[in-house]
Simulated scan of single mutants.
Amino acid sequence: MSQIVRVFISQVHSPLLDPLTLDQLRILAVVADTGSFSAAARQLGRVQSAISQSMRTLETALGTAIFDRAGKIPTLNDAGRVILADARRLIEGAGALKARAESINSDIEPELTLAVDAIFPVEVLAGSLKDLARQFPDLPVTLYTEGLSDAEQRLRDGTARLALYVPFGDVADNRDMEYLVRIPTVAVVAADHPLAAIEGPLGRDVLEREVQLVLTDRTSIADGLSGGIVSHRKWRFADLTTRLEFLLAGFGWCRRMPTHMVREHIASGRLKVLDLKEQSGPDLAIHIVYVRGRPPGRAGRWLIDHLRKELQDCVGCGEEMVESV
């Protein structure tokens, strides 16, 4: 344990006022940076005697000498160099604390926690969060990417403040929702799969004989993204990425794959769009969900507005691409 930390711990139990101040630590850092008491005094706009007295008070508070005064100019000794490193961390922490308080006073969340459904376009999410970091550099962000119903669970247990997902069932009374984007989906199969060679439209009598790759949540209560199970043989997956890999490998067919995830594979000929007799149903509507009375703060609202703009370019052309295949 460092010397400066030991002093802080011991003084927690002291009835006296803490003689160690942030100003002393800042002066110590300036003395180290400028190389002398006199140079630090000039930079800080103080008299040299005040700098010298402040450093002696710091040594008294720490209970150890941190300067070697044998020469003409006091220099940091071994203990002083170790304590200087601790002091710089405390100064940095104090700056972060002040920035956090200023952010809170400006209606910026102390921390932004997001739970995002895995169907959300990851390139848009990553780009928007990168821009968010530039706009709000002191804002801590925690991101959870979840499967079906799990994003809602993060909101329910208080882990996340904002959740972006497709609400398949009834939303709790203490939730507020805002529509964000409609994700187009398409029925697809690998180009070398037997279904790819059959002219459509395909009915249940054909589809039910082949393996259907179904996305489900961990509790197996939500098959919303599968868009309806047709096949007698089905393989269930908890995440989209794994299901896509099995789809590309020809293990089965998918009824509702998010268009943005398969667009390039369709264009390259690795996947084929299936012409089905039964329509897959409406596209998937992602909503922003949060606890009523705790709406997004300034950073959260900035992120939502940014996502809306970026999503227009990523998702909006999905239907046109599929129709042209």
Rank of each mutant, 00 (worst) to 15 (best):
L271H: 04
I286D: 07
D275N: 10
L311Q: 07
M321F: 06
E264P: 04
H260K: 08
C317H: 15
C317I: 14
A285V: 08
M261Y: 07
H260W: 09
E278Q: 14
Q312Y: 11
V289A: 08
S268N: 14
A267K: 14
E278D: 15
Y290I: 00
D283K: 04
A299S: 04
L274W: 04
G297D: 00
A267V: 10
D275L: 09
K309G: 11
I304K: 05
L271Y: 07
D275F: 08
L271P: 07
I288S: 11
P296H: 03
G293N: 08
I304V: 14
E264L: 11
M321T: 09
T259R: 00
H287Y: 09
E264G: 06
Y290C: 00
A285E: 15
G300I: 06
V262R: 00
A299M: 03
P295K: 07
H260Q: 11
E264A: 10
G300E: 02
L311A: 04
Y290V: 01
M321E: 14
I266H: 04
I286L: 13
P258A: 05
W302F: 14
M257K: 02
R256G: 04
H306I: 00
R294K: 13
L284Q: 06
G269M: 00
M321Q: 15
V289Q: 11
E278W: 04
K272C: 08
H287I: 01
E310Q: 12
R292I: 03
A267S: 13
E320N: 14
R292S: 14
L303D: 03
I266M: 08
Q312L: 12
E310C: 07
G318I: 01
M261D: 00
K309L: 15
D275S: 09
A299K: 10
E310L: 05
E264C: 11
M261P: 00
R256D: 03
G293P: 01
R255E: 02
T259N: 00
Q279E: 15
L284N: 01
R292Q: 14
L311D: 05
A285G: 10
G269K: 12
I286P: 01
R292C: 03
V315L: 11
R256T: 05
H306Q: 12
G318D: 11
V262E: 00
P282N: 06
G293F: 01
Q312G: 13
A267M: 10
G316A: 09
V289G: 10
S268Y: 10
W302E: 06
E278K: 06
H265N: 09
D313M: 10
G281L: 12
H306G: 03
H306R: 15
R301D: 13
I288E: 10
R263Y: 05
A267I: 15
L284A: 02
H265L: 06
A299H: 08
D283I: 01
